[in-house]
């Protein structure tokens, strides 16, 4: 499997140094788990991967040439749009309405398809954000705590659906739960605290 190299990147906000010559390897076509306590630079690294921030120095893979998909830490749904429309907003026209509906049904949102996002519970919103990310076109998918707020039974089903949908794809999974990582068949761990020190 080929890899994407992040080499010697530095990033600072004013006097706060987030990364100083930080390097890590992302394995393409596999699930990479990103570990790190709050304040370890996880969000900054993800933002750089998604092209929302630039490193001050160092070498990043050519993410601008790649299609990125993401489940953000916050759901980032359009509140007035229905669950269905939130997904439709980002997917290619080639993705049919039936595919969108089937995916929403598969994660237990059959009843919520036409409901505005603002009327959905936290767990439901999370699943809409996940379906949106999974149905979008991507070379790399960033999943920032995608199963947060789901009850155990739903989580089990959603993880199994996500693992199947991302098989063979480059995934960056942020989680604090080793079980989630195992069930997502993660093979590589990037521990920010170890790598930064």
């Amino acid at each position: 499997m080929s890899t994407l190299q992040i080499q010697n990147i530095s990033k600072r906000y004013g006097d706060t140094v987030v990364f100083e010559k930080f390097s890590c390897t992302l394995h393409q076509g596999e699930v990479n788990v990103l570990f790190g306590a709050s304040g370890s630079g996880k969000t900054t690294l993800l933002r750089m991967l998604m092209g929302l921030e630039e490193a001050d120095a160092g070498l990043m893979p050519p993410f601008e040439d790649m299609r990125i998909s993401a489940v953000f830490q916050e759901d980032r749904l359009c509140n007035n749009l229905s669950a269905y429309s939130n997904v439709k907003l980002v997917v290619e026209p080639s993705v049919s309405s039936e595919q969108v509906q089937n995916a929403l049904v598969a994660v237990g949102l059959g009843e919520a398809i036409r409901k505005p996002a603002k009327e959905l519970s936290g767990g439901m919103r999370r699943r809409v954000a996940l379906v949106r990310a999974l149905l979008a076109t991507y070379d790399l998918i960033v999943l920032d705590e995608p199963f947060k707020g789901l009850d155990e039974e739903t989580k089990r089903e959603v993880i199994s659906y996500t693992a199947e949908a991302t098989e063979g794809k480059t995934v960056i999974l942020v989680t604090h739960d080793m079980n989630e990582a195992t069930r997502m068949k993660a093979k590589h761990v990037i521990n920010l605290e170890t790598l930064r020190s």
Partner: peptide, 16 residues
């Protein structure tokens, strides 16, 4: 701004 970032990441067309 977070929705706009989401649209940037997913490359949502300008019209949408």
């Amino acid at each position: 701004k977070k929705l706009l970032e989401m649209a940037t990441v997913f490359r949502v067309p300008a019209y949408r």
